[in-house]
Nucleic acid binder design. Sequence first.
DNA 1: GCAAAAGTGTTGGCACTACACCCATGA
DNA 2: TCATGGGTGTAGTGCCAACACTTTTGC
Lengths: 229, 229
Amino acid sequence: MPVSYEYERPALTVDCVLFGLDEEGLKVLLIRRGMEPYQGKWALPGGFVRVGEALRNAAERELEEEAGVKNVFLEQLYTFGDPGRDPREHVVSVAYYALVNLEDHDVVADTDASDAGWFALDDLPGLAFDHEEILEVAKERLKGKIRYQPIGFELLPELFSLSRLQKLYEAVLERPLDKRNFRKKLLKLGILEETDEVEKDVARRAARLYRFDREAYDRMVKEGFELQL
Amino acid sequence: MPVSYEYERPALTVDCVLFGLDEEGLKVLLIRRGMEPYQGKWALPGGFVRVGEALRNAAERELEEEAGVKNVFLEQLYTFGDPGRDPREHVVSVAYYALVNLEDHDVVADTDASDAGWFALDDLPGLAFDHEEILEVAKERLKGKIRYQPIGFELLPELFSLSRLQKLYEAVLERPLDKRNFRKKLLKLGILEETDEVEKDVARRAARLYRFDREAYDRMVKEGFELQL
DNA sequence: GCAAAAGTGTTGGCACTACACCCATGA
DNA sequence: TCATGGGTGTAGTGCCAACACTTTTGC
């Protein structure tokens, strides 16, 4: 591996796919670009990696600056580096995806609302750069991951009903699930804590609320237990 | 995302974890470093990404230059970017892993042998940079991937016995498997083609040889079939 | 009383695990 | 004839999918 201080380098950015869940379903946060290229188009939040900055930190920084979120589940997704993906020059982007629960956090409250927005996954505008591809990869990752790691809870408020959880799984997996089988399976895992709370202000029978039992999950992981959701 | 031509950039490299299989088991290819830092230490093959070069191409180029292999299974692994991982400066490395069948290819035949070598995974020298961490991630990926994609065949010669295949799975998964169950399961998948060939020059009953049926596999994938090895 | 979603069990089939012996071959 | 690995079947268990009705509540 020769030293190559003398050579030109590709630029390096991070881009973040931030997923959120509201009553309508799964959403992704997009930012409207204020400058060329793709001025006025929607794009994933992201920006340049600074020298001396860890990639994860760069992603966290961009999420905070552009989306106003902190301390969310964040994981590296894939690195996109085709020379033509940015018309200006060769820009390599390390993509991350993040999950946020939209009911407990005020996301994008401190940002100019006209510049950022939540979009349903099945009703997206055209995106800048190769961001549609990045989003597709993120959706696939989420689909695969949710089946063997309890990341879905990152998208839900602290207390949630089993129906809510099921709708989330159905949104991520893009297929319907059987209610009875879903409930049996999730309850048997032993990572849900039943509470005494029920839904409020609903015009029907109120559903019992549950809480994700992180300690039980950590214990299972430590004992080498393999989850299968 | 502001333009930042004026800012300094981290350097960008690719590193490749090249796995191979021989009679003794799973091996990884390492290169002895000829210069500082870590001069004389073993490291993963890799090098700088050129401006205008796709990441995958850079990985393929390094594999060819340093290991003498072409046209192998190659997949992006993860991107490592901690500022301290290279003592010289901030170097971000996109890691790939690759699989090669050591019996049908002459790997590293055209390279100075003293500078490259295959090492058993359980008997490794200390590695330069954070390459031990990269290798660990690669092993984990292989372990996860081999269970639902037939990548194991990339490591085997065209014709192989079921025992050989089983030993490969055991090496990757790092646990013993039951012979009868393994054979039943793999044969039932319908992606193995039985041949009339048998092993040669063995001092025991010769095993029947099989061939990976890529077409059958592609057909299954197209029909949305989900493999579980 | 009606609309709307909550909640609840059983069955049949399939897949997985565990397990031990005979066979074919070459030396 | 012996050593070596090749090759084979069954039984028990648990998991999964399929499937429909009653309950609660607010309006």
